[in-house]
Design a binder for these strands. Structure first.
Length: 585
DNA sequence: GCCGTTTTCGGCCCGACTGTTTTCAGTCG
């Protein structure tokens, strides 16, 4: 685990503990914010601190949300491995009580009450407590107890946030179902799915319709619904199960006149919304899910006030003096200051530079792969089968690769509508050397070098390994640089700053692997690379024709990094792209 | 605890729904 994530976790725990103890909510919020900022840092926080200890606090406070107090705690954690204040807090609140907060419906007040009244100090304790005893806790009646039982079961069944590649198909299905209802004028999914996050916690739907009762009743009785959590005038909430995917789904029904305001509110992120609302206050306005209003009166919508803007997102941003902000950027990472620079979109992609055939572990022949790519309007497809150290993926020996190159040249003749490049996804071995010798690599049009094994290396070794590959003069692209698998494998945690500098110097591109299991580089790392001016490749790593559709996940990740089309070599025209590839030969 | 186109003090986003209340606290997003 990267040290950023470890440090962030401690601040997160501080926030939870303080909340249980009933601390000032703004203080709690400050810890939450610090945790988020630290987790999002592209620099390794340990490196920042150790670079020069005396000035560490000062440099840390340069990050928004990190003040002197937080900075000193970061330094303490890096130096000693502990946070005194957290240790003291854990004396007061048993670690197991924190687990209770993971259960939907249980907040800090309930956790504290159960612990103080009944000594419940873990989810196991809670499960072992009888309904009768639980109901003795203040403000806890029969219904609350029953909801807690269901929530525990839900948590055990659903586990992690759901990868976007599993959540999106389900969301599209539900959207279609809602769209078919009589009187539904607009329907869209919002939330983290619309923002294109790599994992999705729950699905959020927004509907504008003539008959809200019909939409709501249909929603809570959809076939996949296993439990109804809430059913109100404008807001309903259910749990659904679709195969292995178990998710909460929220529906919000609004008048069409305020659809834009509601869509903004429901898309989030929460932090982005807070920023906008603060900005509105500074301008003497008030923003909520019913619109942007002049004046700072509470609930202006109740007194019949006409909003300045509400129908579309565009007019609300415009009234605040901002260009429309793409959902992918709405994470409070500086998007309000970004201006109107273009963002990359799927239609900009004109080449696939990382794909497999039946020669290794793909399902398409060279020609089938080429025709699929041509059918998608691409000018170039690179055939990059696995190298010999991947026997499990039927990696090619030197002799097989030589014959494969010949076969690719022949296919290139046979399919004139697209340029087929002979390439390889060559393994970066654990010491940073490559799986083929230079003489063979030089015969290839394109080399994608990727780590596949030894993915638990320590950060320093991993950094050296990847630097060696980046600096190799015959390598064009580093494929899925960390080797992480979303929710399943952390992968390597190299010093991103060092990789970025090396990639710039040696003119090597870094990949965003668009397979939703990978999304590697991830959004925050990608942002640092893009800001530094590194060339980026967005590739689907296709093993089958339908894998080409993964491109939308990669592009969305790139949009979250604020990437303009120019940064991405897959958007270049054929001459420019082929020219750059030849510059490494 | 953080932060500053008036500020080093005094703010800090806003609303819906549920359940246990009898006017609202807790939780969520």
């Amino acid at each position: 685990m990267s040290s950023n994530k470890e440090v962030a976790k401690l601040f997160d725990q501080m926030a939870a503990g303080l909340e249980i103890l009933g601390a000032n909510r703004f203080r709690v919020n400050a810890y939450n914010r610090a945790s988020r900022v630290i987790e999002d840092l592209t620099e390794d926080v340990r490196a920042v601190v150790e670079q020069d200890l005396p000035t560490a606090v000062k440099r840390l406070t340069a990050f928004d949300g990190i003040g002197k107090g937080m900075a000193e705690k970061v330094v303490e954690v890096i130096e000693t491995g502990e946070m005194t204040e957290l240790k003291e807090l854990l004396q007061k609140v048993p670690a197991g009580v924190f687990e209770l907060l993971e259960i939907p419906g249980i907040g800090p007040k309930a956790a504290k009450a159960m612990w103080e009244e009944l000594g419940i100090a873990s989810v196991e304790d809670l499960k072992a407590t009888s309904d009768e005893d639980l109901a003795k806790v203040p403000r806890m009646g029969k219904k609350t107890v029953a909801n807690i039982r269901k929530a525990i079961a839900f948590n055990e069944e659903s586990g992690d946030r759901v990868p976007i590649g599993l959540a999106k198909p389900l969301a599209i299905e539900i959207r279609e179902e809602l769209a078919q209802l009589d009187g539904v004028r607009q329907v869209e999914y919002a939330g983290s799915l619309r923002r294109g996050r790599e994992t999705i916690g729950d699905l959020d739907f927004l509907v504008a319709c003539d008959d809200s009762a019909l939409a709501r009743d249909h929603f809570v009785s959809m076939p996949r619904v296993t439990q109804v959590l809430a059913k109100g005038e404008t807001k309903s909430s259910v749990r659904v199960k679709a195969g292995a995917v178990v998710m909460q789904v929220d529906l919000r029904i609004v008048p069409e006149a305020v659809y834009g305001a509601a869509l903004m509110y429901f898309t989030g992120s929460k932090e982005h919304n807070v920023r906008l609302r603060e900005l509105a206050i500074k301008q003497g306005k008030r923003l909520n899910e019913y619109g942007l209003f002049s004046g700072t009166e509470e609930r202006p919508q109740d007194s019949g006030a006409e909003p300045l803007a509400a129908r579309t997102e565009q007019e609300i941003y415009a009234d605040l003096g901002l260009p429309w902000v793409a959902p992918e950027l709405r994470e409070d990472r500086g998007e309000l200051e970004r201006g109107e620079k273009p963002l990359i979109q799927v239609s900009d992609i004109r080449a696939e530079l990382h794909a497999h055939t039946t020669a290794s572990d793909g399902r398409l022949s060279i020609e089938e792969l080429a025709r699929e790519a041509a059918g998608r309007g691409f000018h170039t497809i690179a055939v990059t089968d696995h190298s010999k150290s991947q026997p499990i993926a039927n990696g090619l020996t030197e002799d097989r690769l030589k014959r494969h190159i010949e076969a690719i040249r022949e296919a290139d003749e046979a399919v004139p509508e697209i340029k087929i490049l002979a390439g390889s996804e060559v393994d970066i071995l654990s010491d940073g050397s490559l799986d083929y010798d230079d003489e063979l690599l030089a015969q290839l049009d394109i080399v994608v070098a990727s780590p596949h094994a030894a993915l638990r290396q320590d950060p320093a070794t991993a950094t050296e390994r990847l630097l060696k590959a980046i600096r190799h003069p015959l390598v064009h692209i580093i494929g899925h640089p960390t080797g992480r698998i979303v929710n399943r494998r952390e992968g390597l945690a190299p010093d991103l700053k060092a990789l970025i500098e090396a990639a710039l110097e040696s003119d090597t591109a870094l990949e965003v692997n668009a397979n939703w299991n990978r999304l590697d580089l991830r959004d925050t790392h990608l942002r640092a690379a893009v800001d530094a001016g590194v060339k980026i490749a967005i590739n689907t790593d296709a093993h089958d024709s339908r894998h080409f559709d993964f491109i939308s996940y990669g592009v969305q990740t790139a949009r979250r990094a604020g990437m303009e089309p120019e940064s991405c070599i897959n958007t270049w025209d054929a001459d420019r792209l082929h020219g750059w590839l030849r510059s490494k030969r």
